[in-house]
Every structure is written in C-alpha cells, then in structure tokens.
Computed example of a mutant assay.
Amino acid sequence: MRVAVVSESFLPTISGVTTSVCKVLQELRRTGHEAMVIAPSGAPASFAGFPVHTVPALSYRQFPVGLPNPRVLRLLADFRPDVLHAASPFLLGAQGIAAARRLGVPSVAVFQTDVAGYASRNHLGQATRLAWRFVKWVHDGADLTLVPSTASMRDLRRIGVQRLDRWARGVDLDGYHPNNRRDPAVAALRRRLAPNNEVVIGYVGRIAPEKQVERLRALRGLAGISIALVGDGPSTPLVAKALAGMPVTWLGRLAGAELAAAYASFDLFVHAGTEETFGQTLQEAHAAGLPVVAPRAGGPIDLIEHGTDGFLFTPDDDRDLRRHVAVLVADSALRHRMGEAGRRAVLGRSWENVCGSLFGFYQQVIDEGLSLQAETLVPAAQRR
C-alpha cells in the first residue's frame, strides 16, 4: 500500500496526534508499506525512512497550524497514493481530503481534536455552531471517519456525519510497564518526589486550558500527597498560581525513557480535563500499572471501568474529584488492585494490533473505491 499522511501536528511538536502518526508510520515501515507525510513547517525532512514535506504554518498557542497550499495537490499527484490518512483534519487536512477526492484517491479521516468543544469552552456562542458545521464539512468529504470513543461517535452522528467507525489508539506496553519501578533511576526520582514517602499523584500532558490542570487545586490540604506534573504549555503561569503553596514538582516535558520513569514513580494518575476525545495518557498510566481518576466525559468513559481500574468523577465537580483521589490515597491495596486491572485492560492494545486494524480500514476504503469504479464502468460498456 502507498499511504499519504496529512497531519495537522507533527514533530517537533509533541501531542497525541503526533504520537499517533509517528506510531502509524513506524508500523507502515515495519510491515513493508510506502508512505509520505505532509505536515506544518518545522517538521524534520524524514521520519521512519519516509519523506516529510512541509507547508507554511501560523503559530497558535505554541502549535503550528498548517495552511492550505497548492503544493499539497502536486505532492499527492506525484506520490500517487492508494489511500490518504488525514490525522485530526483541520485546515491542512481539509485540503488534503479535497485534493484526494479530486485525484480519485480514497481517504480516511481520524477525528482526534474536538475543535468545536474548544469553541464551546471559550463561550464563543455562534462560533461553536460554525465549528460543528466546519467539522461536518471536513468529515463529509472523507470516505471514512475513524473516531476514538463512544462520545465522539455520538457527537459526530448528532451533526449528521455518516461514514463512521471506531478506532482506538495503541499504547507502548513494553515502554510503560510496572516493572520499571525497579529501575534505579525511578527510585531516585521517587525520592525526589516523595522524600517522606508521600503518595505521588501524577499528571502527564499539555499544560493548556482544555486540560484544566488547575483543577488539581481541589486536592489542597489533602494529607500525605505529592503532585508531579509532566508537560508544559501556555497555561503554566495560571496553573502555578492555582497550585501555589501545594506540594508540586514540575518535571517539564519528558519523552522516551524519562517519561516512562515518571509514570513508574507515580502512585496514581489524575486527569481533570473534560474535552478529551480519547485520552492517550490514561492508557499509558494503565500500562504502567496505575489507577486513573478522570471525568465521566469524552474518551475516559471508554478507558476507565469505574471502581475496577480507576474512578470517573462528575465533570466540573471538584469535591467529587477530591473524594475519589482521597479514597486511593488512603488505600495502598486498592491502588495496587486497580493498577493491575488497568494493566490487564490495555494488554490487547499494542500499536501492532491497533495499526493492523487501521490498515484494514485503509483496505476497506480502497476496495470500496475500486468497486465503485467497476460499477460506473459496467453501464458504460453496456451502452456500447
């Protein structure tokens, strides 16, 4: 298969979209397929042995936003892909889908970023409705849209998007593993985070408005805890102010072995944001053997079995958030049981398995396109 990937986010930007695209490209390389990438400016010239082409971009909240460019159509025409993968399509992805349709190339759009949700959170009123209309227009152009959760499926069905299917995300089951706790580097980090054997409450992700990290202030005064934050972003000053005086350690942006060590140093994982279409860091925490506390909204609903591998708290209810965290802080045996359950829950979600499903969706739209072409040719032959 020849796969053209048009991604709204790519290296060096770190995000769930970037991580997903990189894993897909690595798996395409491992399984002998061909690929190329179109991404916003600043990306490396190649990844996993595949060429990466860039287009001009604007910066928005520390993220490059790729702009439509005539080069997209030329790149796709020259590459002649069998299928186009549009990762979290917005402006650049919308152009990629339109260009693929013009070239007769089937497309798969992966819904990962709740643009309309962002508009709603910022009380943009009419802009929220316009955002949903834009989302529908983009995804109506694709032959298939893959959604990560039941909540996303419901939202897109509500606005009338028709061609939908479920595709989860993979997780690195070897990199994030409970056995990492035996590593000397983890022990050293643990001593730094919990010098008096505190219960370490961890968060990994962007420090951005939609992540609502400042809501961890609900844990103020909870005895015997230490909070570790991994990540950076535009809300750092706001979160630092909200958590001032609390036992917080800022670890900054981490990746690779350092990120795996951070997860291994936590006792439980908390995510407070209510706008996750999926929640990749929740999966990573479960893979590391941690119980997870997150809101009963969006992607976490599918990732957490309440009372078994974590807790789902009432969205926007800080008292409920605190109550569930307090239960885990007070009960080490419960943390251990829930962490084991979380690990078991993600064992079938290796990137190899998940990408195998994705490649099946690629083949599905390719086959459907060939069938449609055959149907249009038969009547023409009959007329002759």
Rank of each mutant, 00 (worst) to 15 (best):
P300V: 01
D318V: 08
N197E: 14
L282C: 13
S357C: 04
T13Q: 14
I301H: 09
Q280D: 03
M153G: 11
R296C: 07
T308Q: 12
L347R: 06
C22V: 12
R253Y: 11
W351G: 02
S152R: 01
G252A: 05
F313Q: 08
L238M: 08
E276K: 07
R215F: 05
Q126W: 12
G256T: 02
F111H: 15
A109E: 02
T277M: 12
G49H: 14
V135P: 03
R217I: 04
A223H: 14
G224F: 01
E276G: 11
P300T: 06
G42V: 14
V200S: 14
G256N: 14
W351T: 00
E368W: 04
S7M: 03
V17S: 08
V37D: 10
I227Y: 03
R169E: 05
P51Q: 06
L251V: 08
L282K: 06
V292R: 07
P51L: 10
R323I: 00
Q62W: 09
E305H: 06
A294G: 06
R191K: 15
S152L: 01
S332D: 01
V24W: 13
L243E: 09
A4L: 09
P148T: 00
L164I: 13
G42F: 14
P300W: 00
L377A: 13
A330V: 07
T274F: 03
V161C: 13
A272H: 09
V6C: 13
A151R: 02
F134Y: 11
F359R: 12
R344G: 07
F269E: 08
S152N: 05
E352F: 08
A86F: 02
G256A: 10
V147C: 02
L303C: 13
M153A: 13
L259M: 08
H123N: 13
F134G: 03
S88I: 10
I97W: 01
L321M: 04
S265L: 12
M153Y: 12
N69L: 07
P237Y: 00
E368I: 02
A86N: 02
V72A: 09
Y203M: 09
K23D: 07
L238D: 03
C22T: 15
R102L: 15
S357H: 13
F10G: 09
R344V: 07
R29E: 15
T54W: 01
D183K: 09
A240G: 06
R384H: 09
G245M: 01
L130C: 02
L103D: 03
D140M: 04
P44G: 14
E198A: 05
A262C: 13
S149G: 04
D232P: 08
V6P: 04
H53V: 05
G360Y: 03
L84E: 07
P300L: 01
T18M: 05
R323M: 04
V346D: 09
R182A: 15
A264F: 10
R61P: 04
L290S: 10
L282T: 14
V327M: 10
